[in-house]
Design a protein around this nucleic acid. Structure first.
Length: 475
RNA sequence: GCUGCUAUCGUCUAGUGGCCUAGGACACUGCGUUCUCAACGCAGUAACACCGGUUCGACUCCGGUUAGCAGUACCA
């Protein structure tokens, strides 16, 4: 086969959600796997729903995920309007399309009547019988018109889908699709066929919601006499309610996941499995590995339901793969200004202590609070009393803390973790309490919560004097 | 409604007629490690939608049923 060329055709009507980005990613992987080209084409033919700000966002997503495309600058359909007009005229000449002057009202009424009769809503070809003279006259009068595709009467249209095998649809299921709108812009159907041909697209990998449009596209290819590409319809990505993922689900864009503290590696790895699986048990894939392993034959027919728990799992994994230096940069956006004042060196000491505990970068704040902020004395005291109660402890935490404080005042015990711990364990023995309980008391005293990073290292980062000060304040 | 697509653990999936008393991952539960929480290691619970047929033999092939989803726009 000659060089493979694929494309994505985002429409700037909003920020694409993560499901659309999956489709882009699959096209990218497919192209790279086969050493082909991957293009981006902006389909901005719907002027009513156009949101100009969404275009830079689309590009930002691709950029963040490092989904590289081969046509820069990207192709924008609205810059090539004359092409579509010419193409539509060509179809009129070939008698494959016709002018339609029907008003919106008439169409609406027609549809209502058909629905009432339980018939599929279909254009009734009212304008097909217009004579050339009538058409010319109407155009001359400035009547608004659209151009419709003339669907053949009763024809089996089929193609061999790359993912689903042979699919056949009878043309009588098809409506005389509008190709050119009354505002002069093409519809998706016209524009996509014209530009795919122009760009010599060889494979169309798109969501399964396009299956029912494919027969129209085939008809269009034949009408123009263009060479058809191969189609592969990807499974739809479903929300937790098993309906097609959409904004309505609060479906997030990749940028929102980024801001929530997810790594691109985790997003990519998660999207990889939304419709594709390797033939072995491999879970983690770098981008080069994905490119190497990804191909059509691994794509599933079944629609996957998104599982964000898995995304969290991947994210935690990829966070753990990062060096402290890398995490320092990645977590910088989540740090408060007064935290940054601690300086790079000090913060680099914190990172290894919380790294295994991070699932999202945004958890920085809750995991590190105790480093930066001394616990509230009153609340901490209450917490200590509470655990005294639970443990039915004879000597109260405060007495034990006094002893710990005395011990820790000696700078020599801070030399290393072993020495430090051994002494504390001795104190626990003296009080006849569990070692774990003693560490819990100290943990709460220093941090104000029952969950903290490892104590010795934590207190070293906080600093001896500050740590002791926090204890002292409780007594 | 009509047309099309799909159907294995809760979720993502492996499985292409005998390697399947169905494998892996997430999640969940337990155990281990441990100063807490994690991380890590080990173990456990848990699925072939249903009915027919083909076959010596069906998760795998065929037909039907059911269910889910998608499409049915001068939106993409």
């Amino acid at each position: 086969m000659s060089q493979i060329r694929v494309r994505i055709a985002p429409s700037p009507t909003g920020i694409p959600h993560i499901g659309n980005t999956r489709t882009a990613f699959y096209n990218f992987l497919f192209a790279r796997h086969h050493g082909g080209k991957f293009y981006v084409r902006i389909e901005d033919t719907d002027r009513a729903r156009l949101i100009p700000e969404s275009l830079p966002k689309i590009m930002e997503i691709l950029d963040w995920l490092k989904i590289e495309y081969d046509n820069k600058p990207v192709y924008v359909q609205s810059e090539h309007l004359e092409n579509y007009k010419k193409a539509a005229d060509e179809l009129i000449q070939k008698n494959k399309a016709y002018y339609c002057f029907c008003s919106e009202e008439r169409l609406k009424k027609l549809k209502e009547e058909q629905t009432a009769r339980h018939e599929p809503p279909r254009y009734d070809r009212h304008c097909l019988s217009l004579t050339p003279q009538e058409i010319n006259q109407k155009i001359k009068n400035g009547e608004r018109y659209v151009i419709r595709l003339k669907i053949p009467e009763n024809r089996e249209i089929s193609w061999v889908d790359l993912i689903r095998g042979k699919i056949t649809v009878n043309s009588k299921e098809l409506d005389d699709q509008v190709l050119l709108k009354s505002d002069g812009f093409p519809t998706y159907h016209l524009a996509v066929i014209f530009d795919d041909n122009l760009m010599k697209i060889t494979h169309v990998l798109r969501g399964a919601e396009w299956i029912s449009s494919t027969p129209k596209h085939i008809l269009l290819y034949e009408a123009f006499g263009y060479e058809k590409p191969l189609w592969g319809h990807l499974p739809l990505i479903l929300g937790p309610d098993r309906a097609k993922l959409s904004k309505r689900h609060g479906a997030q864009s990749a940028l929102e996941y980024r801001d929530a503290g997810y790594l691109p590696e985790a997003i990519l790895n998660t999207m990889l499995f939304w419709g594709w699986s390797p033939k072995n048990d491999q879970q983690f894939f770098s981008t080069p590995e994905m490119i190497e392993k990804f191909d059509i034959d691994g794509i599933n027919k079944n629609d996957p339901v998104v599982d964000l728990k898995k995304l969290d799992y991947f994210n935690g994994y990829y966070i753990r793969q990062k060096s402290s230096q890398e995490l320092f940069d990645l977590m910088n956006p989540y740090m408060q200004d007064d935290e940054k004042k601690w300086g790079r060196e000090k913060i680099l000491m914190i990172i290894p202590l919380i790294k295994d505990r991070l699932r999202k970068l945004s958890e920085w704040k809750e995991l590190t609070r105790g480093f930066f902020v001394a616990p509230d004395v009153k609340q901490t005291a209450t917490l200590l009393q509470a655990i005294d109660g639970v443990c039915n402890r004879k000597p109260e935490s405060m007495q034990i803390l006094q002893k710990i404080l005395d011990y820790l005042k000696n700078p020599a015990v801070w030399d290393n973790n072993d020495v430090w711990q051994t002494g504390l364990r001795k104190i626990a023995d003296e009080f006849k309490i569990k070692h774990g309980d003693l560490f819990m008391i100290l943990r709460i005293a220093v941090w104000g919560e029952k969950i903290t990073p490892p104590l010795y290292e934590t207190m070293k980062v906080i600093g001896n004097s500050e740590s002791l000060d926090r204890i002292q304040k409780l007594l």
